[in-house]
Design a protein around this nucleic acid. Structure first.
Length: 303
RNA sequence: GGUGCCAUAGCUCAGUUGGUAGAGCAACGGACUGAAAAUCCGUGUGUCCCUGGUUCGAUUCCAGGUGGCACCA
């Protein structure tokens, strides 16, 4: 029996949750979330996790499954998601994955290179050096330790430089020697569905959803995690703007405005990533019947 | 009804002594391998309100029109 992973993705606020649930219901299966922020149990309002009713309607995985204090990343997600998928495919022929975290989805579909976990002390040191000496100093060191990567990396992007140096310093080997990205075979076939709509309409949905989040108590939720604002998991749209407000840097109105803008920008970034991916089939958010019909045909043909 | 002021990018506005224009914000395009809702790079997107006139040439000057604001009635 052919196993199929149906991936439903698209920009934030497009309506992935609702359609994923309909699809999962149709195929009588469960949902694996691919959302890098909904995994944190301390966050609900600002990450737009599915409602209690939605969670009862279909069993979800990777919702509230980890803590903001965990050092989570795409590689861990790859490992854990594949484990969950293996279990699910023993029960189901089809499994639905949904979410907007592009790198997480890619990690499940294609895999990520195996590299050592980063030593937090080393990262701290390098960040301190970055601040004190500037990026040029780190660049020079990277040029020495990994000239190949230096030649291709975005030299203005400190995150890339720092991470490459981390791996070089920890392993004594060039970072590029780990970057082989062999295509990892998966024991299931993949159908990728993208959801998109008119940009103005998407912006409308985003603004509306942010207003709803405010009504539902986003400020209180952000305040609860404010003591941990330095965590990477909280470098997140909807929280960092409120942190700035709590610090007295901006008004609440300004924070809300910035949350809307940053969410719009995030959606645009997602669309940039998804665009020119030839393996995606696109639907409008209101074309759920066509979508399910398309999947049904495709999956039954595979039998 | 009269007089005055204004009309330029999605918004707020600058500017061109006449040679088709630029800031901020917003927006848009792109990159992406253990931070990915992160991080980084790039881009003015324009019937200069409309119609005539003067001029080699008008967004700019003139006239009329339309719309807005203010004051007087």
């Amino acid at each position: 029996m052919t196993k199929t992973l149906v991936i439903i993705t698209g920009p934030t606020a497009i309506g992935k949750t609702r359609i994923a649930i309909k699809t999962a219901n149709f195929f009588q299966t469960e949902i694996v979330s691919a959302d890098s922020r909904q995994i944190y149990r301390e966050l609900s309002v600002g990450t737009a996790v599915p409602s209690t009713e939605e969670l009862l309607a279909v069993k979800h995985h990777f919702i509230h499954s980890h803590s903001i204090h965990d050092n989570y990343n795409a590689s861990r997600y790859e490992t854990e998601a594949l484990e969950v998928l293996e279990t699910l495919f023993q029960k189901y022929k089809t499994v639905v994955m949904t979410g907007g975290s592009m790198l997480y989805i890619d990690a499940v579909c294609k895999g990520i290179d195996i590299m050592p976990d980063v030593d937090p002390e080393l990262r701290k040191n390098l960040k301190t050096r970055l601040k004190a000496e500037g990026i040029e100093s780190l660049r020079r060191q990277l040029k020495k330790l990994d000239p190949d990567y230096y030649a291709t990396v975005d030299l203005k992007n400190p995150v890339r430089i720092v991470h490459a140096l981390e791996i070089c310093l920890m392993t004594g080997k060039p970072y590029s020697s780990f970057r082989t990205l062999p295509i990892k075979e998966r024991p299931f076939s993949i159908i990728k569905i993208g959801l998109d709509c008119d940009r103005t309409e998407l912006h409308r949905r985003i603004n509306q959803r942010v207003d709803k989040m405010i009504e539902s108590g986003l400020e209180e939720e952000a305040h609860r995690v404010f003591p941990f604002k330095h965590l990477n998991s909280l470098n997140t749209v909807g929280y960092r703007e409120f942190f700035a407000h709590f610090n007295g840097e901006i008004s609440k109105e300004k924070a809300v405005e910035l949350i809307k803008r940053n969410t719009r920008r995030y959606a645009r970034k997602q669309l940039t990533w998804f665009r020119n991916k030839p393996d995606m089939t696109w639907f409008q958010p209101n074309e759920e019947e066509q979508l399910i019909e398309f999947l049904d045909k495709k999956i039954n043909k595979n039998e």
